[in-house]
Design a protein around this nucleic acid. Structure first.
Lengths: 158, 158
DNA sequence: GCCCGGTTACTCGGATATATAGTGTCCGAGTCCGATGGG
DNA sequence: CCCATCGGACTCGGACACTATATATCCGAGTAACCGGGC
């Protein structure tokens, strides 16, 4: 799994902690965690395309949350960055080769291996879908209450 | 996720369907599904290292199941091929950059993002751990009863 | 003092390089089978 | 006919290329703010 997911989640959380409606430039968001600004920008574009962020061009421009953190699930973020292709891709090798030739059964029924993998993957996705950014933020706030002010101070415009 | 996982699962199932204790060469197993023989061999070595297969060198050599299919979980296979590193790797970027500097809280408590991702990943792994190769085989047998004989015919020594 | 136009600086967005991991291939070490020659 | 020995062929195991993906960077299009001049 790509590193961009971690960056995206933390960036979204930072925007939520900031609480302002003013857009924040990608450079500032990157400086908050010492990330490569241009590459973070690339990931943020994916979030814009997925509808999680809205972007504002020009001076005083930047990114802001497109909707409340309570309405953004972890699955939304993962899908936005990694894409929606499944972790396990079944290439139907059961139909190929000597064994596939011999087995003249109908291949309309789903591959059992694929089903097993999909079941596990569904459990993963459902867990991610059941957790919103607001939930994650609440845990962080409970453990270290000063994080919100730290973000506001760290992202203060230079 | 690598393609080797699919190959490994199908190969293990084929060995289970064969039911023989004689080792089967990687070349024959590869021919069963039109896979690159040398590359499949590479994956099978990982299964040997993980203790799922045992290998026999020399003529009439090959691979055989090291233990019953009921004692091999899907998680065992995935871990053997893909490695045991987690899907989501937390690099603790919360400690870096301007925000990390401002937040002088204790970082001994786990990162909330990491916890959230780990929760989902645990659900995935538990689902995989709860399904054995014998379970998958049972589903396949139920849907298409002729698959066992097809495998025995397709893997017949030339 | 107020309004308007040009300039400037700043931002996102996508096109372009580099590094890393996945994919695929090849050759050598070891082992067993079978042929061969002798008893 | 039986047995020991040698040769050969087959197998796994790991070392060696190639390709696709992820990572990182750079430059251009567009826009809003700012400054200067005119009314």
């Amino acid at each position: 799994m790509g590193q961009g997911v971690e960056w995206a989640v933390h960036t979204l959380l930072n925007l939520d902690w900031l609480g302002t409606s003013d857009p924040v430039p990608a450079a500032d968001l990157a400086a908050g965690h010492d990330l490569p600004p241009a590459y973070l920008n690339k990931q943020l574009q994916l979030l814009v395309k997925a509808g999680l962020l809205s972007s504002v061009p020009g001076p005083r421009g930047g990114f802001r949350l497109a909707r409340s953190s309570a309405q953004i699930s972890m699955l939304d973020v993962v899908d936005a960055i990694e894409g929606t292709e499944p972790l396990f891709r079944c290439t139907e090798i059961r139909q190929c080769g000597a064994i596939g030739q011999c087995a003249d059964g109908d291949f309309s029924i789903p591959c059992a291996v694929k089903s097993s993998m999909n079941r596990a993957e569904s459990a993963w996705r459902e867990s991610l879908a059941g957790q919103t950014l607001a939930d994650v933020r609440a845990v962080a706030d409970a453990h270290s209450p000063g994080v919100a002010s730290a973000v506001r101070q760290g992202l203060k415009r230079r």
